[in-house]
Simulated assay, not measured.
Amino acid sequence: MNKLPLIAGGALAACLAGYFGLSSYSSAQAEKRLEDWVYEHQLDDKLSWSKVSASPFGSSLSIHDITFDVGGKEPLLRAAELHISEVISDEQRSRMRLRLQGIEADQQAMGGLRQLGQMGGFNRQLNQATRFAPAVNTGLREMPAFNLALFVDIDDDDSSLVTELELELPELFSTRLHYQLNGLRNLNRELQRFTDNLADLQENPLLLVQETEDLALAMQRAELGSLQVSLRDLGMLKRSAALYQRYNTPLDPTAGSADKQREKHLRQQVAEQQRECSEELGRLPRGLEDTCELLGQLALGEIRGLSLSLEPEERVRLSDLERLDSPARINRLLDRLNPQLESL
């Protein structure tokens, strides 16, 4: 009888047993550290979870069924899972990737979106048309569970800061922001020192203000390496346009199909908005010439989203963004930023 499959199977079973044994140990250690952190920050009665799981070698950590309760009628925040990975923390570098899945916010968040909707597409209570702004009219009664991801990498060797932020709101939209800042000397060390001394600084408000101002000045001296930001519609614009057509189209019973009248009225309104956009913005710099046209296509659902990228061809400091006191300076800065606006 060939014993090779049995030996291979036994080796695999031993490896799996070792893996899950290490994983269980790592999870227990991770949960103990999490409990200590919650205790130190006096969050025992606010933050809770059902389970903690970790990879055997500490490369990733997942916290399940998180609830953050501040004593209101309902928890302020729930999340199905928080996943932490790509962790580096030493004197030269700090890096971490966080992913929050299945986030449920309280109804205040949805209330804020409803207020924006009233400012934009229609106001049912007043039964009157308001300015066409479909991008803020959700048409939803409840906020769907959403996902959030954050990545931060501070590297003193490269004097750089890289940040990525992704937000996905199902049935609404998704957005992504990525940027890199250069010329940040010793930012990681400074932030670690600030964090280590925060308790003492809070007891001395003047010193805390000074330290905060020093960090702000360091950020102002930073140079923008690149920036990309995108917005993709996941259904919000389609519903918003439908709501606008339903409640803001003046129908003529003798003019034929109501649906055709609504479509025609919507396109007329978007065309008017495009015209006003072009008049207000005037001649746009290279890379942004199609801004008004793309915004109109987005409102009509002809494209799914927009992406804006900045790839400076010359040095641009963050402090330059605060000195936009004339059209000529704004144009010079835009030329340096080398913007590109594209459809998705």
Score class of each variant (00 low, 15 high):
Gly183Lys: 11
Asn182Met: 03
Val162Leu: 15
Leu191Gln: 01
Phe194Gln: 08
Glu168Asp: 12
Arg193Trp: 14
Asn188Cys: 02
Gln180Asp: 04
Arg193Phe: 09
Asn186His: 04
Leu165Ile: 07
Glu171Met: 03
Phe173Asp: 01
Ser160Phe: 00
Glu168Lys: 08
Asn188Val: 04
Leu191Thr: 04
Val162Lys: 13
Gln192Arg: 04
Leu187His: 06
Asn188Lys: 03
Glu171Gly: 02
Asn186Arg: 08
Glu168Tyr: 07
Arg176His: 02
Glu171Phe: 06
Thr175Tyr: 06
Leu187Tyr: 06
Val162Thr: 11
His178Met: 11
Val162Gln: 13
Ser160Arg: 07
Pro170Tyr: 03
Leu172Gln: 02
Leu172Ser: 00
Ser160Tyr: 00
Tyr179Arg: 09
Thr163Asp: 11
Gly183Trp: 10
Leu167Phe: 15
Pro170Lys: 08
Val162Asn: 14
Gln180Asn: 10
Asn186Ser: 06
Leu181Gly: 00
Tyr179Glu: 07
Gln192Lys: 09
Leu161Val: 01
Glu164Ala: 15
Asn186Thr: 06
Phe194Pro: 07
Pro170Phe: 06
Glu164Leu: 11
Phe173Thr: 03
Leu191Ser: 04
Gln192Glu: 07
Leu184Trp: 02
Leu187Cys: 01
Leu172Cys: 00
Leu184Ala: 01
Ser160Glu: 03
Leu187Ala: 05
Thr195Gly: 14
Glu166Leu: 09
Thr163Leu: 13
Gln192Ala: 11
Leu181His: 03
Leu172Trp: 01
Leu161Ser: 05
His178Ala: 13
Glu190Asp: 09
Arg189Tyr: 06
Leu177Ile: 13
Thr195Met: 12
Arg189Gln: 14
Gln180Ile: 03
Ser174Gln: 08
Leu181Trp: 02
Ser160Pro: 00
Gln180Cys: 03
Asn188Arg: 01
Leu161Glu: 00
Thr163Ala: 14
Gln192His: 06
Arg189Trp: 12
Phe194Gly: 05
Leu169Asn: 11
Gln192Asn: 08
Glu171Arg: 09
Tyr179His: 07
His178Asn: 15
Asn188Ala: 05
Glu171Ile: 03
Leu172Asn: 01
Leu167Lys: 14
Asn197Val: 07
Ser160Trp: 09
Arg176Met: 01
Arg193Cys: 04
His178Glu: 15
Asn188Gln: 02
Leu191Trp: 08
Tyr179Pro: 01
Leu165His: 08
Leu165Arg: 03
Leu177Pro: 11
Leu181Ala: 01
Arg189Phe: 12
Gln180Ser: 10
Phe173Leu: 07
His178Ser: 15
Leu167Ser: 15
Glu190Phe: 05
Asn188Met: 01
Arg176Asn: 05
His178Val: 13
Leu181Lys: 00
Thr175Asn: 10
Arg189Glu: 12
Glu168Asn: 13
Leu191Tyr: 07
Leu177Ala: 11
Ser174Thr: 09
Asn197Trp: 07
Thr195Arg: 15
Ser174Ala: 10
Ser160Gly: 00
Thr163Phe: 14
Asn186Ala: 12
Glu166Thr: 13
Glu168Val: 05
Asn197Ser: 13
Asn188His: 06
Asp196Gly: 12
Glu190Val: 12
Glu168Trp: 05
Leu161Met: 05
Glu171Trp: 00
Leu165Ser: 05
Asn197Glu: 14
Leu167His: 08
Leu187Met: 06
Arg185Gly: 10
Asn182Leu: 09
Gly183His: 09
Asn182Pro: 01
Asn182Asp: 06
Glu164Arg: 15
Arg189Cys: 07
Glu166Ala: 13
Tyr179Cys: 10
Leu191Pro: 00
Leu184Arg: 02
Leu169Arg: 07
Thr163Trp: 14
Leu177Gln: 13
